Amino acid sequence: MKKALLVIDYTYDFVAEDGALTCGQPGIDLEDYITNLTKDFLHDGNLVIMPNDIHEENDPFHPESKLFPPHNIKGTTGRNLYGKLHTLYEERKEEILWMDKTRYSAFAGTPLEIQLRARGINELHLVGVCTDICILHTAIDAYNKGFKLVIHEKGVASFDPAGHDWALRHFEHTLGAAIVR
């Protein structure tokens, strides 16, 4: 079975203590796990995709503008990957597929499904932030498109602990995802 790792929104704005929409310490605590998992996937010759949020400054038409403070603005350091993952990406970017996304789901308005189908990938491993927003919406779309899901519990976090816990249960019990604990 061919598989891919999706590292979703593990950016400075979502993770760093002073990020614009940070999940703070829970996100920071993922750094080693996500970086090592990314190395493992690359070592084994699997596809690694980094779908990352991108916004235009002062965009009054984007639905998130009414819900969240400005974040992951195009051309800012807030869009850089966080910590060791940023360094790994810079060293190995020719092996990693970066993908801009403008909605919660990495499938919405992106070529993600085309890239996966072209490579015969049918198993997706999800890590990143936020568990109950972008990870959740990506997982639901993946489920509806027939992909097998694997969620790495030590690789996801949120700024909402109750939402995080709910999403983990939803992945397992409603979407049939395997949870790596």
Rank of each mutant, 00 (worst) to 15 (best):
G155N: 06
L97R: 12
N58Y: 07
A167L: 11
K101V: 12
H173I: 05
L85E: 04
V129L: 14
N46C: 14
D18Y: 08
P63A: 01
H71A: 06
L149R: 12
L67K: 12
T11R: 00
V150W: 12
P70H: 06
P63I: 06
C130M: 12
L175Q: 07
I140H: 01
P51K: 13
S105P: 11
D59N: 15
D59K: 05
R169M: 13
D132T: 02
F61S: 07
E113L: 07
V7H: 14
E91T: 03
Q25H: 04
D40N: 06
K66E: 09
E123D: 13
F171A: 13
D141C: 01
M50W: 02
L88V: 10
R169I: 07
I34A: 04
L21D: 01
I49E: 09
I49T: 08
M99P: 01
I34D: 04
F171G: 10
P111N: 15
G75E: 11
V127R: 02
L5Q: 09
V180W: 09
H137Y: 12
P111G: 06
E113C: 05
I34P: 03
I114D: 13
P26I: 07
K2T: 15
T35A: 03
L42Y: 00
K154M: 07
P111L: 14
T87D: 15
